[in-house]
């Protein structure tokens, strides 16, 4: 094979250029520890990476949604707990009045006053806010859902929040359901009795004031029903919170798996890159060394 000057030089150039190109790529990988820096590095993996990035982005928002849902539900739960306390107190008063009625009007007025206080407490709980939002008014979050006489001004809106891809959770309970201000007729057919919270208090108040212990005894049953309803609602919230926790855990796990996958897809393996650089460096040096040998001797040098 005839080797001409151009053959020498173009070979040297090609070898050095190739080596330098590879070194450049590895150097970039080493400097930012990313396996891919352009879309063309490995289109299918890059595509997967972009998908994962979008999913992660969504996942972060879902976790924030879950936090809010947790906040809402626990607040509602606390409210219900306080309500059940109020009911217990009202029941105690009713029991004491049913068994040993006070005959003095002034004492009875005092007891009625106590009941009024309890009612006010219940009202302020009914109009509970998180930030500037009334949480028991359904969709009507900007105005107090209960008036002082117990009239409900909210609606039946159920607020959904997406806590994982396609999984929604209802984060509120409309106040009407807790206090039974709407359909409070006794549904004897299904043996479900619904009792209006505020009405019962009014009846109890009048009965105590007038000393009608028979009515007071009836009220006791109703208070019991109300109490059980609230406990049932709390149980519902409890199961929702459990559900929320479980979904949240799954979502977090998914985020972690995705992050791990993204890392394995897109992050450069340090040990691998460093060893590759070492290898490439050796190639580069030998390319340079052999070029030196190539360029040096000419026949003309031996003629001197």
């Amino acid at each position: 094979m005839r080797i001409s000057e151009n053959t020498y030089h173009s070979r040297i150039q090609e070898n050095i250029a190739q080596s330098k190109e590879k070194l450049g790529q590895l150097q970039l990988q080493l400097s930012n520890l990313k396996k891919f820096n352009t879309l063309s590095d490995c289109p299918s993996n890059v595509f997967k990476l972009l998908e994962l990035k979008t999913e992660q982005f969504k996942g972060e928002q879902f976790q924030m949604n879950a936090h809010l849902a947790y906040n809402f539900l626990t607040h509602t739960d606390h409210t219900l707990a306080s309500l059940s306390e109020i009911l217990i107190q009202a029941k105690e008063i009713a029991i004491s009045q049913a068994n040993a009625p006070t005959f003095q009007l002034s004492t009875r007025s005092l007891i009625v006053e106590e009941l009024n206080q309890l009612l006010n407490q219940a009202l302020s709980l009914a109009n509970l806010r998180i930030g500037d939002r009334y949480i028991l008014g359904g969709f009507k979050t900007q105005s107090p859902p209960f008036q002082t006489d117990g009239t409900y001004c909210g609606d039946q809106g159920l607020m959904n929040l997406e806590i994982s891809n396609g999984i929604f959770i209802i984060i509120n309970i409309p106040g009407s359901e807790i206090f039974n201000v709407l359909n409070c007729q006794k549904d004897t057919e299904n043996e479900i009795q619904k009792v209006n919270f505020f009405e019962i208090f009014e009846i109890l108040k009048t009965a105590i004031f007038n000393g009608e212990w028979k009515v007071i005894r009836d009220c006791l049953d109703d208070l019991e029903i109300l109490y059980h309803q609230i406990i049932a609602t709390r149980a519902k919230i409890g199961s929702k919170l459990q559900n929320l926790n479980a979904t949240c855990q799954t979502e977090k796990r998914q985020c972690l798996t995705q992050a791990a996958l993204a890392a394995s897809l897109g992050e450069a393996d340090l040990a691998h890159v460093v060893s590759e650089i070492g290898k490439e460096e050796a190639t580069f040096h030998s390319a340079l060394a052999s070029s030196k040998k190539f360029i040096q001797p000419h026949f003309i040098d031996f003629l001197k």
Partner: peptide, 11 residues
């Protein structure tokens, strides 16, 4: 091409 048409200084 260089094999055929290129210049070799040694030659």
């Amino acid at each position: 091409r260089d094999q055929i048409s290129g210049v070799s200084i040694d030659e």
